[in-house]
Simulated scan of single mutants.
Amino acid sequence: VHAEIVLPDGLDAPWARDRALLWNAAEFAERRCDARVAREFEIALPHELSDAGRLALTRAFATDLSNRFGAAVDFAIHVPQGKSDERNIHAHVVMTTRVITADGPGEKTLIERENRWLIDRSLPTT
């Protein structure tokens, strides 16, 4: 029904709003062939909400993730097709594992860091 890429507030990175450029850059930024380039969340959306309400809810979730971790968040809202339960409206939310900068992917986001790395820098582990 809807697909969108959300970037951290105040970031001017037009390249990251292009899905192909974003995910190719995310792949290229990794050194290992088996590296994690994204985290995926699948969220159920209340069927009682309007289309606009579901979009606002998903966009707010994506914006929070993007601002909290500095990552690009790509989301798509799906409605059931065929014989599926018509109430199974959901969103696929995919977040880069690296901070997004104006020039390309940067360092790994805090969610990707090991607890030891976080503790050494007096950062929370949760």
Rank of each mutant, 00 (worst) to 15 (best):
R39Q: 04
R31S: 08
S50K: 12
A44I: 01
L57Q: 14
W23G: 03
A20R: 15
W23R: 05
E42G: 00
E42V: 14
F61W: 11
S50A: 09
R39I: 05
V37E: 02
L21K: 15
F28S: 04
S66N: 05
F61M: 13
A29K: 04
E48V: 09
A29V: 09
I43W: 06
N24E: 12
E40G: 05
G70N: 07
D64T: 14
F41A: 07
D64V: 06
L21Y: 02
N67G: 13
A26S: 10
F41T: 06
L49A: 11
A26N: 01
S50L: 09
I43K: 01
A52C: 06
E48G: 05
A52R: 13
T58L: 10
D64F: 14
D51Y: 13
R39N: 03
T63R: 15
F69G: 00
L49R: 15
E48L: 08
G53E: 04
E30A: 09
F61H: 14
C33V: 07
A52P: 03
P46W: 06
L57V: 03
R68H: 08
A20Q: 14
D64I: 03
R59P: 03
E30Q: 13
E48Y: 12
A38L: 07
L65R: 05
T58D: 06
R39E: 01
V37A: 02
A56G: 08
L57M: 15
T58Q: 11
C33Y: 00
F69Q: 01
R68T: 12
F69R: 04
T63G: 15
D34N: 03
L45W: 09
E40V: 09
A62R: 11
E40P: 01
H47I: 05
R39M: 07
P46T: 05
L65S: 08
A62M: 10
H47K: 10
R39H: 05
A26F: 03
L22Q: 08
P46D: 10
A25G: 02
A56C: 07
F69L: 13
L57G: 05
D51A: 15
E42M: 10
L65K: 05
G53M: 06
F28V: 05
A44P: 00
S50F: 09
T63E: 12
N67M: 13
L49H: 14
F28R: 12
E42T: 12
A20E: 14
S66V: 04
S66A: 15
H47C: 08
A26P: 00
F61R: 14
R31E: 04
L55Y: 15
N24T: 13
A29W: 02
L65P: 02
R39G: 00
C33N: 05
R36C: 09
T58C: 15
L65N: 02
